[in-house]
């Protein structure tokens, strides 16, 4: 479904389905020229999952209850994905699939950092 969504957005609209790029362009004003298309994508992304939630007995994101952890992580994800010009969907799904060197290298680095982050905060510091 994720790959199908990315393929649809590419073949029909001619756009890369990268979550951080689509939203980031709305936040920092760089995507002003096609903001409606971005907003429509975000609307679908936000509104459709809750329609499917009733199909499950229980849906829990298990997100941390530590506000410092959540804020720090959110800031890192926001700044990092925009500096890198992509996140899991843009670099990982859309980049690797066209054998883009940038997408592959970005994915190696964020997976590496993600693994180190879990090692540090979960096993060494015990905050998550």
């Amino acid at each position: 479904m994720i790959g199908g969504a990315a393929a649809l957005f590419l073949l029909v609209n001619g756009r890369i389905m990268g979550a951080s790029g689509i939203v980031g362009g709305l936040v920092d004003g760089s995507g002003k020229s096609n903001w409606r298309e971005r907003a429509a994508f975000v609307a679908g992304l936000v509104a459709v999952p809750p329609m499917l939630v009733p199909l499950y007995a229980e849906v829990d994101t298990h997100i941390s209850q530590n506000v410092f952890v959540i804020v720090a992580a959110g800031l890192l994800v926001g700044i990092g994905s925009r500096l890198a010009n992509g996140c899991t969907s843009g670099h990982g799904v859309c980049g690797i699939s066209r054998f883009s060197l940038r997408g592959i290298v970005a994915t190696v680095f964020y997976l590496l950092a993600g693994g180190m982050s879990v090692l540090l905060f979960k096993h060494l510091l015990g905050v998550i």
Binding site: A19, S20, V23, L45, T61, H62, I63, S64, V69, I70, A72, A73, G74, L75, L76, V77, G78, I79, G80, S81, R82, L83, A84, N85, C87, T88, S89, H91, R102, V105, A106, T107, F109, Y110, L111, L112, A113, G114, G115, M116, S117, V118, F121, I128
Partner: peptide, 21 residues
């Protein structure tokens, strides 16, 4: 920027378990 950004993004992704999508 690609390297620094991906490292920061990955650190945050690991810390909370959520990426932008």
């Amino acid at each position: 920027n690609l390297v620094v950004g991906s490292l920061l993004f990955g650190a945050g992704w690991g810390l909370a378990g959520l990426c932008p999508g």
